[in-house]
């Protein structure tokens, strides 16, 4: 049997196109040996949830710099849950003030990384918290 791979989706929900962070993260995950599904800018939460399921990812990383994270991030979690995919872990990053962290955690976002988070820290978080799904 070959080695199981961690599959991660990097997505930008909402209308902002500031994708520098998302694209760097996609490359960094690839270099860490993960399989990364990158879907580009301007994705709706519905597109993101559907894609996460079609691609059977272990983790969805959301990046938002417009301030709309308070609606968009929880909405993705909610949609995954509705479609019976709440085992897919959702994390987020972007321009997110400390004040919003708890609300997002309560909504099911498992971790939040703001600008300046070392890539190494994010990769380590993934290795510690995400195990590639075992079988059926």
């Amino acid at each position: 049997m070959t080695e199981k791979k961690i599959r991660i989706m990097v997505a930008k929900p909402g209308l902002d196109g500031h994708d520098r962070g998302a694209r760097i993260l996609a490359r960094c995950f690839r270099d860490a040996g993960f399989e990364v599904i990158y879907t580009g800018c301007h994705q709706t939460p519905e597109q993101i949830a559907a894609t996460a399921i079609q691609e059977d990812v272990d983790l969805v990383g959301l990046s938002c710099l417009s301030g709309a994270h308070r609606y968009l991030f929880p909405r993705v979690v909610e949609l995954l849950k509705e479609q019976g995919a709440d085992d897919i872990v959702v994390i987020g990053g972007g321009i997110i003030p400390d004040q919003d962290f708890q609300t997002l955690y309560d909504a099911g976002i498992k971790a939040i990384f703001t600008p300046g988070s070392p890539l190494d820290t994010i990769v380590r978080w993934v290795r510690t918290n995400i195990r590639p799904r075992v079988n059926l």
């Binding site: 690839r30 270099d31 990158y38 879907t39 894609t51």
Partner: peptide, 22 residues
């Protein structure tokens, strides 16, 4: 393609197909 060096991959073809995601 999978990177022969790291074993990782960026799978980006579907970016162009995302309007059909739903």
């Amino acid at each position: 393609p999978t990177s022969p060096f790291t074993g990782g991959a960026i799978l980006g073809d579907r970016i162009r197909m995302q309007r059909h995601a739903e």
